[in-house]
Structures are given as structure tokens and as C-alpha cells.
């Protein structure tokens, strides 16, 4: 009885064979639809801050650093990879990549910064500001009841936490290139 049980256990084990991977040497690709590190396409981004305002973990920051330059900063150290930003982006500028091996000894590797040239408003002379000109109006959000402007003012803005030191130049730093003619 005892022996029989043990043999059965052994049989299960041996039938399965070795299932663990020889991991770092033998990569395992992520399946389709995997929610890895989000990637911004700066050519599509319009700087509407929809992602920044609805990131549950508040890892996306937006800030105007001068009249025409707006910076989007994404900090994946605290990202929960929920993919909410991808859902919300009206321009489909964000995609979830299949990158999940994110360990690094340099914190800068975990951030993505996008420099965006913004249009200046013909009438008031400022660049398009999300508080005034609401790009969110263009969002079609399933399951999301977006806030009224009054309400959103009450919500603490992640953008107020933005710190310029975070904008060091890194490999992931994206800025618009001059269009080749």
C-alpha cells in the first residue's frame, strides 16, 4: 500500500519530466496580449494627459516646461501594468509591449520621458492646456464616467509632483525628430 502510493507519486513525477526552464539562457516569449511595460509613441501622442489623469498608480506625469514644450514622464518603478492608459489613449499612442524583464541597477532605465512640442493657441497665446481645452472630450471610454472639470480640480494632480531632476537624458528619452524632407 505504502509502496504502491510512493510508486504512483514517482510515476507522476517522472511522467511529467523536467518542466522548469533553463530560464535566463532559454527565454520564454510572452503570449499575445501580454501586458508588459507600456511604450509611448511620441509621434502619435497629443499630450492630452488622459493617461496621466487616470493612471490608478499615478505613474505618469505631465508638465509644461516652457511655452511650447510639454514633457510626459512615465515611471515604471511603481507601474502596476494594468493597461488602463492603453485603454484610454484617444490616439492609440500607447501600446503594452511584451517586455517584462525590467530589473536594473539604474533607476533611469525605468523611466520614459517624451518631449512634446505643443501648439500655441492662436487666441490666448498659450499652448493647449488640458485644464482648459479638454481633449478628453474626444475619448470614448467604456465603463468610464469621466469627471466634470470641477470635480477634477479637486482630485490631486499627479502633475504637481513632477520633478525636473527626473528628466535626465536616457536611452528611453524620446523627442521629436526633424522630419526629413
Amino acid at each position: 500500500m505504502w509502496l504502491w502510493n510512493k510508486l504512483k507519486q514517482l510515476a507522476i513525477s517522472l511522467r511529467a519530466g523536467v518542466v522548469t526552464l533553463h530560464y535566463p539562457f532559454e527565454p520564454r516569449p510572452a503570449p499575445a496580449g501580454f501586458r508588459g511595460q507600456p511604450v509611448w509613441d511620441h509621434t502619435k501622442c497629443i499630450g492630452c494627459a488622459g493617461c496621466a489623469n487616470h493612471c490608478p498608480a499615478r505613474t505618469i506625469f505631465l508638465r509644461d516646461i516652457c511655452q511650447e514644450v510639454r514633457i510626459l514622464l512615465y515611471d515604471s518603478a511603481r507601474c502596476t501594468y494594468c493597461g488602463r492608459c492603453v485603454d484610454l489613449c484617444p490616439e492609440k499612442a500607447i501600446t503594452m509591449s511584451d517586455k517584462f524583464e525590467l530589473a536594473t541597477d539604474n533607476r533611469q532605465d525605468l523611466t520614459q520621458a517624451i518631449e512634446l512640442f505643443m501648439m500655441t493657441c492662436q487666441r490666448c497665446g498659450r499652448c493647449y492646456d488640458l485644464e482648459i481645452k479638454n481633449y478628453i472630450d474626444r475619448l470614448t471610454l467604456l465603463g468610464y464616467r469621466y469627471d466634470s472639470l470641477e470635480v477634477r480640480k479637486v482630485i490631486k494632480k499627479s502633475t504637481s509632483e513632477f520633478q525636473p531632476e527626473m528628466l535626465e537624458k536616457t536611452a528611453t528619452y524620446q523627442r521629436p525628430e526633424r522630419l526629413e524632407k
Binding site: A30, G33, F34, R35, C82
Partner: peptide, 14 residues
């Protein structure tokens, strides 16, 4: 992972 994009935190529900 194939269904939701992640092994554990499914993020399926809103």
C-alpha cells in the same frame, strides 16, 4: 496570461 495579459493581476474588472 493568455486571457488577460498577466499571470495574476488580471485587471479584468471595472
Amino acid at each position: 496570461e493568455r486571457l488577460t495579459g498577466n499571470r495574476k493581476t488580471y485587471g479584468m474588472v471595472i
